[in-house]
């Protein structure tokens, strides 16, 4: 029996020997743990796993995973990962990034990796703050937010990351929360299963510089009313099935179920519908519950497959002959 086929990986196999240097209580620990669990559930051979990151707290992620890892420079993880995946399509390439890294300094690379559809899993830890530089506002910080660099309140309008990814034609958009362990694992697994750029926004708490960033949504007492778990083919309901989302023309609205309205009157989630996705990405608290899970999934050919097909095609059309190539078209001989 082949030793390769009998190898199995446990969660601890993905833990590196490095001391984790995130602040105690940081949401990143939860994400790391779920990711390692998912790697084991998926049995991704450790050597085939490559984790690429930019700069920021989130970008320390690769150091803590016992696989191949590349902690690159601020904002550029998508570009590094693109080069890696195109030249090594056999690897499972994951990108760890943050709201500043991905959407601010790396914004250009972000939109282009989405439209190219390179088969990467992008985990964007969104804590709505710059943590590693100690507390400046980020491109997802709320309007009016007071931070070290905005003592009078931020006058920047924030990005809605899912809408941005969709606008850049990402083929997969998922959303989850650091503390939603099971849901997070489901989204990560779906992201891995999807061939193409899988963008996963993970709401993450920075307990030092933006503590309680997502409490308004994720506190146990209010969670059911303020977030809505989406499932493909299922009606959009929340608050224990007491509320739902209904379309009024082309706009969604929250309706109380009962009194003649039931789940069957509600909007049904279709992951593959880009028009519906546009509506979903714009549903935000407090007007709506925040949709969670796989928000959009619509496969199309991936960049690295197309790129490698062109190489195969070129080889099929013309046998490489370096000597002939160097000679070019017109030559003359001196005797």
């Amino acid at each position: 029996m082949n030793a390769e086929t009998t190898r199995t990986f446990a969660k601890k196999d993905y833990m590196s020997d490095q001391i984790i240097r995130w602040c105690p209580g940081c949401g990143d620990y939860a994400i790391l743990s779920q990711a390692q669990t998912v790697f084991a559930e998926l049995q991704i051979p450790r050597e085939k796993l490559a984790v690429v990151s930019g700069i920021g707290c989130s970008s320390r992620f690769p150091y803590y995973i016992n696989s191949y890892g590349f902690h690159s420079i601020h904002g550029r993880a998508f570009a590094v990962a693109t080069g890696l995946k195109v030249s090594r399509p056999d690897l499972s390439v994951w990108v760890a990034t943050g709201d500043g890294d991905a959407l601010s300094i790396g914004g250009n690379h972000f939109i282009h990796v989405c439209r190219r559809n390179v088969d990467l899993q992008i985990l964007m830890f969104n804590n709505r703050i710059y943590g590693l530089t100690k507390g400046q506002y980020s491109p997802t910080s709320e309007f009016g937010k007071k931070t070290k660099s905005t003592p009078m309140g931020s006058i920047d309008h924030p990005f809605q990351p899912g809408a941005l990814a969709l606008g850049a034609d990402a083929s997969f958009v998922g959303r989850t929360v650091d503390i939603f362990t099971k849901d997070q694992r489901d989204v990560l697994k779906a992201a891995h299963e999807h061939k193409g750029t899988s963008f996963v926004e993970i709401y993450q708490n920075c307990n030092i510089f933006n503590d309680g960033a997502w409490d308004a949504l994720t506190e146990k007492a209010v969670r059911d009313e303020r977030v809505m778990m989406l499932e493909h083919g299922k009606p959009m309901t929340f608050a224990g099935g007491t509320c739902g989302i209904k379309l009024n023309g082309i706009r969604p609205e929250v309706v109380q179920l009962g009194n003649g309205l039931s789940a069957s009157d509600c909007l049904v989630h279709d992951e593959r519908d880009p028009f519906l996705a546009a509506i979903i990405m714009r549903m935000d608290f407090p007007a709506f519950p925040v949709p969670m899970g796989v928000l959009y999934r619509n496969p199309r050919p991936t960049y690295e497959v197309l790129a490698n097909e062109q190489i195969a095609q070129a080889k099929a059309e013309r046998t490489p002959n370096l000597q002939k190539l160097l000679s070019g078209g017109d030559t003359w001989t001196v005797k």
């Binding site: 490559a50 690429v52 191949y68 590349f70 690159s72 420079i73 550029r76 570009a79 590094v80 990962a81 693109t82 080069g83 890696l84 995946k85 195109v86 030249s87 090594r88 690897l91 690379h109």
Partner: peptide
């Protein structure tokens, strides 16, 4: 950066 990523991959 893409070239650096490719170099990491062995190209």
């Amino acid at each position: 950066c893409s070239a650096v990523g490719a170099a990491f991959g062995g190209a």
